[in-house]
């Protein structure tokens, strides 16, 4: 097992604690904080068995970190809905399922 060093664990723990303090000041619960930092695509969910949506394909600019240098790079790419990943389309068959 290649666990990170105690140093990095401590850095992570301090970072997380700061996040929690920030969360408390915004009256959000810890669950929100857990979810906020992992970014997921927009979701579009069917209603009454129908998912009606529009996907626009176009070149748009986005910024992304180039990990080799740590630079924030602006990229101009073909994509759906202006994002570097398209929306997640969720089709609910038969009856409503409460998504987590």
């Amino acid at each position: 097992m290649k666990r990170k060093s105690i140093f990095w664990y401590a850095i992570g723990y301090v970072f997380f604690s700061i996040l929690l303090l920030t969360a408390c000041s915004d009256d959000n619960d810890n669950e929100d904080i857990y979810d906020r930092f992992f970014v997921e695509p927009e979701t579009r969910v069917s209603s009454d068995g129908i998912l009606s949506t529009t996907l626009t394909a176009a070149f748009t600019e986005n910024t992304i970190t180039y990990v080799e240098t740590g630079e924030l790079i602006t990229v101009n790419t073909p994509n759906y809905e202006g994002s570097l990943v398209g929306p997640t389309l969720i089709s609910i068959l038969v009856i409503f399922y409460p998504l987590k």
């Binding site: 994509n79 570097l84 990943v85 038969v94 409503f96």
Partner: peptide, 18 residues
């Protein structure tokens, strides 16, 4: 290929509770 280089894709989830 070019749309793939730009991130032109997305997930489809089919679900139900039963």
């Amino acid at each position: 290929a070019m749309p793939f280089f730009g991130g032109m894709y997305g997930l489809l989830i089919v679900t139900r509770c039963s």
